[in-house]
């Protein structure tokens, strides 16, 4: 049975009148890639800051590796690696020196540190850039350096707070692959993001938070089962009348249909051959249509259905 690495119980954090974390409960188990998904300002970073004993909180408890974490819990902290949302490196130090400096805050042994630093450089693919100063690196390479600084000491728990913000697709893919590699090497990963595609891609379990509250938790399959939508059908349609739209909503398994900018979106729950029924109706009513495609529900749909708003609002 896997052990819980992080346990957050009933956590409340207020900034004056604003409730940033509202009785948040989370449990992250050993070996997981745990996704913390939520829009900007939902409380993801605040929750992470509490886990790291950076922020004080009003109520609740945070346990890491079975112990209540305190600012001077150095025995716990040595097993935690953090990749911050903002790039936090010394602009006066080279890529290698930056990684060595931060690794040196955890690892005393010089030889071991050298080995770890070289492995981190290799891991993030910055071998060609070890003598570069940060200002000479592109945004994507800077993010990779930021990651290397956070994971070089081989922590058992890695917390990545929006590591792919403002990163090009190539670097983003590399980062996501890296996270899976780190997990394969035995690290438990907490991954916060507002990019649902990334979370869907890498996370084994996901918690969706909004306004400081956990609104759903589970695997991506479990989350998708929580909502009505099984299938979304998009059809390019010209000149659909309100009457026709109403009639479409009456078709079997259709529980919602929207029409805007010449695109018809039909939401179905369950049933088979829904697309056939819809296209048949359009043909019989002489409605001309073009491109047709179907889409399985996404985490955005989950968020939309639970909160009534888009994840990226």
């Amino acid at each position: 049975m896997t052990q819980p690495v992080v346990v957050i119980e009933n956590l409340v954090k207020r900034y004056k009148e604003l409730v940033a974390l509202d009785h948040l409960n989370l449990q992250i188990n050993e070996g997981e890639i745990f996704g913390l998904l939520g829009p900007n300002g939902s409380g993801k970073t605040t929750a992470i800051s509490c886990v790291l004993a950076l922020l004080n909180f009003d109520k609740g408890s945070v346990k890491v590796f079975g112990k209540e974490i305190q600012p001077d819990s150095y025995d716990i902290k040595k097993n935690i690696g953090v990749v911050l949302q903002n790039v936090a490196v010394f602009r006066e130090l080279t890529v290698y020196e930056n990684i060595d400096y931060f690794c040196g805050l955890y690892i005393k042994d010089k030889r071991l540190r050298k080995q770890y630093v070289n492995e981190a450089v290799e891991f993030v693919g910055l071998g060609e850039y070890v003598k570069f100063y940060p200002k000479k690196l592109s945004g994507g390479l800077l993010r990779r350096l930021n990651i290397a600084c956070g994971i070089a000491h081989k922590p058992k728990l890695i917390i990545l707070d929006e590591p792919t913000v403002a990163v090009d697709p190539q670097s983003r893919n590399r980062i996501l692959e890296g996270i899976e590699d780190l997990n394969a090497q035995g690290a438990t990963v907490i991954y916060t993001s507002h990019y649902m595609e990334e979370v869907e891609q890498v996370c084994s379990r996901i918690a969706i938070i909004d306004k400081g509250r956990k609104i759903a938790e589970g695997t991506k399959e479990e989350l998708k089962k929580m909502i009505k939508t099984d299938e979304k059908i998009h059809i390019e349609v010209v000149g659909l009348s309100e009457t026709q739209l109403s009639q479409l909503r009456q078709l079997p398994h259709v529980y919602r249909a929207d029409y805007a900018a010449n695109e018809l979106t039909v939401y179905c729950n369950g049933g088979k051959h829904n697309i056939v029924h819809i296209l048949k109706y359009l043909q019989e009513n002489e409605v001309s249509f073009g491109r047709v495609y179907t889409q399985l529900p996404t985490l955005n749909d989950v968020f939309l259905e639970i909160t009534g708003k888009e994840l990226r609002d």
Partner: peptide, 14 residues
């Protein structure tokens, strides 16, 4: 005040 300080604060060095 700074992100660098955040990184230093969460390290296992006093």
């Amino acid at each position: 005040v700074t992100s660098l300080a955040v990184r230093r604060n969460i390290a296992s060095t006093n």
